[in-house]
Amino acid sequence: MAKPFLSIERLTQQFPDGAGGTLTVFENATFGVEKGEFVCILGHSGCGKSTIMNILAGLAEPTSGVVKMDGFEVSGPSLDRGVVFQNYSLLPWLSALKNVTFGVAARHKDWSKTQVEEHARKYLAQVGLEGDVVNRKPSQLSGGMRQRVSIARAFANQPKLLLLDEPFGALDALTRGTIQEELIKVWSQTEQTVFMITHDIDEAILLSDRILLMTNGPMARVAESVEITIPRPRNRTEIVEHPNYYAIRNHLVQFLGQRSKELAGQPSSGDDHRPETVRIDNSEPAPEESEPAVVPTLRAVGD
């Protein structure tokens, strides 16, 4: 098996628990992400999603284990891994445009000022921010617009890996829908590799190629990797019609509601904790029957 583009190998994170012992957030987590893939990670609060994200971003150090990207070990933050934070993390003293040029100028140190600005404006336009609005300060923008700026900043840098930490968590449902579609649009043009944390099952199905499911912490693990067998381009109103949509959704709900608890807290026996691949496809049942991974899934879906 060829090494995936992004490979997380035996990642373990432990913190002192304040009583002399250690608290294991997750242990020996091992999984991969292919180039150009959009992967969401779903799990309850406290399962270590954000910790994994911070390690991938290089903002935190794992207790043990390595993250390799393109065959090289990741250490410390890098422009190759762009991050969109949940709280936007725009610099409030800079205008929307300057927030984006801040990133572009850091990436392309040899570019002229006009080049940088042109590039930034292009990406802002892609998320629907054009004209005078780009000269406003973040405090003068709505939550949705701020997150658009943040997404534009990340995409404008064309990182090899884009990390999205619950980017729509603070937005209302309507705004979230619009920006999700913009995100798909920008992503499909750039073919970025995206790794995203979310709490929203529908959002995950809409956006991702694959969903990683985490059990509850402590001792959490990435238990399943669910393929989203719904063809692209997808759109919020149409995917619900697809025969696989509710099958996948039910599987996810079942996992988060029940099995994430049942599977929680199992210490590793020293092996790698690899997620089990799950493929649910009702649209073309005939050729898929030989897939071995279907077996445990049918029980879980239950319909």
Binding site: A57, G58, L59, G76, P77, S78, L79, R81, G82, V83, F85, N87, S89, L91, W93, L94, F102, G103, A106, R107, N157
Partner: peptide
């Protein structure tokens, strides 16, 4: 720390971070 993280993910050095992020933030 979010703003510092922005600087870190953009590979800014300590001096550059101090001038472009910390100074305006603390001004």
């Amino acid at each position: 720390s979010d703003w510092i993280n922005v600087a870190r993910t953009h590979e800014l050095g300590s001096l550059k971070t101090a001038i472009t992020v910390i100074l305006p933030a603390a001004a």
